[in-house]
Simulated assay, not measured.
Amino acid sequence: MRVFTAKDKLPVKNEDETFCFLAGSIDFKESTSWRDTIIKGSSKNTIFFDPTREDHDTLDNQEMVCHIHWELEALELADMIILNFLPEAKSPISLVEFGLYMKSNKLIVVCPKEFYQYRYVSTICDRYNTSIYHNLQEVFKYV
């Protein structure tokens, strides 16, 4: 298992590897992030793309453009995208990624009923036959 962040060059894929993009709400205030929980519970052949940047709010325009391009390229490379909406978050970028990749068959959506747009997310998942889970523990079978 390896983790690539937005500061890393993206890898070339080997046949025996699975690429997983960790999309969703940011949880800077938590002592252990949901992304770390997924990574620690995964198989050895999974390569993760973690877009989290603690300096996100201080990036200048050029740095932000590079960051966005890295995310888009990593999303395209990914075999699966775990999209986790946290109950208290607004997650506007995650909602954009949700729309962009809904028809890709890559999405594994985690959306608790407390999320403010749960009805929107669950209705779209139902329409496009995308599984929706209410907590992270339900998705460990995929990674």
Rank of each mutant, 00 (worst) to 15 (best):
C20P: 03
C111W: 01
A74E: 02
V110Y: 12
D8C: 08
L95C: 02
K90H: 07
N129V: 08
E71K: 05
S91I: 00
Y128S: 06
F48S: 02
D16R: 11
Q62F: 10
W70T: 05
L86R: 07
I39K: 12
K29A: 10
E138Q: 13
C125K: 09
K40R: 10
E30I: 06
T46W: 08
Y116L: 04
V110F: 10
L75M: 08
N84A: 07
I82D: 00
V65Q: 09
T52H: 13
V109Y: 08
W70G: 05
I108K: 13
K106Y: 11
N129Y: 14
L59N: 01
D16I: 03
E138C: 02
E63N: 08
E71H: 02
N129I: 09
D27C: 05
Y120H: 08
Q117Y: 14
E63R: 12
S31L: 15
G41D: 02
G24L: 07
M102S: 07
F85D: 03
N129T: 10
K13H: 01
T46N: 12
T58G: 02
F98A: 00
V139Q: 03
A74C: 04
Y118E: 04
D55E: 12
I124W: 06
N129E: 13
P87H: 09
K7M: 10
Y142W: 09
K44W: 06
E71Y: 00
A78S: 15
I26Y: 11
V65E: 12
K113D: 06
L107E: 09
H134Y: 13
S25F: 08
F85C: 01
K40E: 14
M80F: 14
T37Q: 12
F28S: 04
E88G: 00
Q62M: 10
S94N: 01
S104D: 11
L22W: 10
I26F: 09
N105D: 14
R2G: 00
T18W: 00
N14A: 01
V3Y: 07
K40C: 11
T32A: 03
F21K: 00
L59K: 04
L77Y: 03
K90P: 00
D36I: 08
V139P: 04
Q62A: 10
K44E: 10
D50G: 06
K106C: 10
Q137D: 14
R119E: 15
V139W: 06
L59A: 03
